[in-house]
Amino acid sequence: MPVRRGHVAPQNTFLDTIIRKFEGQSRKFIIANARVENCAVIYCNDGFCELCGYSRAEVMQRPCTCDFLHGPRTQRRAAAQIAQALLGAEERKVEIAFYRKDGSCFLCLVDVVPVKNEDGAVIMFILNFEVVMEKDMVGSPAHDTNHRGPPTSWLAPGRAKTFRLKLPALLALTARESSVRSGGAGGAGAPGAVVVDVDLTPAAPSSESLALDEVTAMDNHVAGLGPAEERRALVGPGSPPRSAPGQLPSPRAHSLNPDASGSSCSLARTRSRESCASVRRASSADDIEAMRAGVLPPPPRHASTGAMHPLRSGLLNSTSDSDLVRYRTISKIPQITLNFVDLKGDPFLASPTSDREIIAPKIKERTHNVTEKVTQVLSLGADVLPEYKLQAPRIHRWTILHYSPFKAVWDWLILLLVIYTAVFTPYSAAFLLKETEEGPPATECGYACQPLAVVDLIVDIMFIVDILINFRTTYVNANEEVVSHPGRIAVHYFKGWFLIDMVAAIPFDLLI
C-alpha cells in the first residue's frame, strides 16, 4: 500500500533555474538572501570558489559584500557603492579590487542584480563577478574607477581610450546646418538635424578633445543650467548677453562664444560640459537660429522629431539603469545623424518603425519583477520565466494532490484497515475457520451469522477504491517536481505499489 509523501509542494524551481543557467555559462556568482541580516550568502558556485580561493563552506553565510576579499588596494568608495546597491532595488555595476585567499590582487567587475517577489519586494541578490585585470595590471588604489561605466561593446579594446569628441564640431553647429540641408533625401539625416562627426583615429590627448566618459557625465550638469543662461549661451556672438549692473557675465554663455574659444586653444572642462549641455537642449539648428531671432517656433511634425517616441515608452518600462547606459552608448555611435529632440514631445505622434532597438522591449506582467540581467542570462521568455513566489501546480481535472487534506485522511483510514487485516486475518484463519468446520452448517442466516465476513468484505472494497484513487494521485519525481499527468501517474504506480495493492485487495476469504 503506498505511503508516498512529498510535502515540499507547491515547489518553486526558480532558484534552481537560475543556478542551472548560470552554471551553463561558466559564470562566477553568488546568491544572497536579502531578508536576513547583512544579506548572507546562501549559494556560491564553483567558479566563484576558484576565483577567490575560498571553499564553499568558508563563503556560505558570510555577508555578500565580500568584505573578506578586501585588501589594501580595495577602494572604500567601491565598497560603499556595493553596500548601497544592496540597500536599493536597481541593478548596478561596480569595479573593485579584490584579494584572493593567497593574497593576489585582481580588479573585478561586480554586477549586483536584485530579484523581487510578486509584491515588488527584493528577496534575493545575485552578484556576478568578472575579472577585468590581474594584480600586475591593477593601478594605484588612489585612482577611482567606479565613477565610470563599463566599456562599450562596439569599441575595440585597444581603442576604448582613444575615443574623442571634438569640441569644434559642437561649436560649428550653425555652420554645418547648410551642408545638412543640402544633403536632402540623399543624406542619412532628416531636415533640421545636426550631424556630429566623431574622430576615432588614435591621437595624443589634446586640450581640444573630450573623453567619452566626460560626455556621459554632461547629463548630470544640465539641471544646474538655468533657462535664461541656456538661451544666452545659444544666442551666440551676435547678441551678447546682458548683465545687470554690478553683475558679471555668465561664464556659461561665454563658453560657447566662437570668438572667445578661437582665441585660446584650450577650454576648461567645466565650460566644455556646460556648452555641450546647452546645445543638447535645442532640438535642431533651426531652433538655434530661432533663439537668435527671439522667436522659438513649435517643433515640426516630421520623422526626426518622432524618433524618440518609442524611446520614451522603453525608458518607462525599463527595469534597470543598464538600459540608460545602453541608450547613452548607442546615442554616441560615430558617423550617424543625431536628432536633438526633447523627450517631452507630442504624445499624438505616431511611433516610426526603427531597425535598431535601443531599449529592451516591454516586459510582460509575469516578468515585471525580474531584472534585465536575470532575463538576459536565463534566456527565457515571458511565458517560461515565473515570478519568485509559491505557485500552485497546474493539475488535470479529477486529480488528487498527494499533500491535500483528503489524501491525508484517506491514508490514515487505509492504515487502520491494514492494521485490522494484519490482526484479524490470522485470527480468523486459526480459530474461526476451525469452529466453522466443526459446527453445523448455517446457510440460512447468511452474513448475519458471520459479522467478521462483512467487515472483511468492506475492507476489500476499500482497498479496491484505494487502488483507483492512487491512479489519480500526484507524486514527486526525482527532481522534486509534482507530477499531475494521468499517464505518468499510471506508469509510476504500475512500477511501484500496484502489484502489492492488488494482492492485498483480493478477497481470499470469499474465494475459499
Results as ranks from 00 to 15, higher is better:
R27E: 04
S313F: 09
R20Q: 12
L170G: 15
P251M: 08
A169K: 13
P347I: 04
E130N: 14
A204F: 15
Y54I: 01
V377R: 03
I19S: 02
F14I: 06
E50L: 12
P72Q: 05
V377F: 06
G192E: 06
P258H: 09
S304T: 14
R269K: 08
R269H: 12
S284C: 01
A9G: 15
R164Y: 06
P205G: 14
R242T: 15
F106K: 01
E118H: 11
A228K: 11
Q84K: 12
G139Q: 15
C49D: 01
E58I: 01
M124L: 05
C265A: 15
M124W: 13
V377S: 04
N146Y: 15
D16V: 09
R164L: 07
H309W: 12
A217V: 07
P241H: 15
S320A: 11
V110T: 05
P240N: 11
Y54L: 01
Y54V: 01
D46H: 04
P297F: 14
D346V: 11
R281C: 10
D46S: 06
A34T: 07
V384G: 04
R62S: 12
K332P: 11
S255E: 13
V279L: 11
H309R: 09
R62C: 07
A172P: 14
M137K: 04
A303G: 07
I330R: 12
P241M: 12
P205I: 06
E58Q: 12
L51W: 04
K166T: 06
Q247M: 07
F340Y: 14
L378V: 03
G345D: 07
A32M: 01
R181G: 06
R181K: 13
R73E: 14
P298S: 13
G238S: 08
Q84F: 08
D323V: 04
P299L: 03
L200S: 14
G294R: 05
E95R: 13
K116M: 13
D197Y: 01
I31M: 08
V341C: 13
F163G: 14
V325K: 12
G53M: 06
I123C: 10
M124T: 09
G184R: 11
I42N: 01
V370A: 05
V196D: 02
L248G: 12
L107H: 14
Q25T: 13
Y327D: 07
A80M: 14
K116P: 12
D102E: 07
K161I: 01
A169E: 09
L212W: 09
I358A: 07
P151Y: 13
S320W: 11
K21R: 07
A89R: 14
L378H: 01
S318T: 14
K28S: 09
S207T: 12
N38C: 09
V341S: 13
V198Q: 11
Q376H: 07
G24F: 09
D16G: 13
G345C: 05
K161H: 05
E90N: 08
M124P: 01
P237H: 15
E365A: 12
G24Q: 13
K116S: 13
F340R: 14
V59A: 01
Q247W: 14
V295K: 11
A57N: 13
R76E: 15
F163Y: 07
Q84C: 07
A185L: 08
A260F: 08
I30W: 01
S255P: 10
G71E: 01
E214G: 06
G306D: 10
E357P: 12
A203E: 15
L296I: 13
T375R: 04
D355R: 07
C66H: 01
A223V: 08
A160D: 14
R273Y: 12
K344D: 13
A190L: 15
P72S: 05
A78G: 09
R73I: 08
I96M: 14
K364R: 14
M60T: 01
G139D: 09
V180Y: 15
A350W: 06
A307D: 14
G186E: 12
S239H: 06
V122S: 11
T337G: 12
E130Y: 05
R176I: 01
R356F: 12
T371F: 14
Q335Y: 04
L315V: 14
V180G: 09
G71K: 01
T329W: 04
P168T: 06
A190F: 03
E230W: 06
G24D: 13
P310M: 15
A282L: 12
K166M: 05
D136K: 15
A203K: 13
S207P: 06
L315P: 12
M133C: 15
P258N: 11
K344Y: 05
H368V: 10
D287G: 08
S354I: 04
S284Y: 05
P202K: 07
G238W: 15
H221R: 12
N317T: 08
K101P: 01
M308Y: 12
R292M: 15
R35W: 08
P114N: 04
R73C: 08
A175S: 14
E177C: 05
G149C: 06
R4S: 14
S266K: 08
G189E: 06
C39P: 13
S304Y: 11
G262C: 04
H221W: 10
L127R: 01
F129W: 01
Q335F: 04
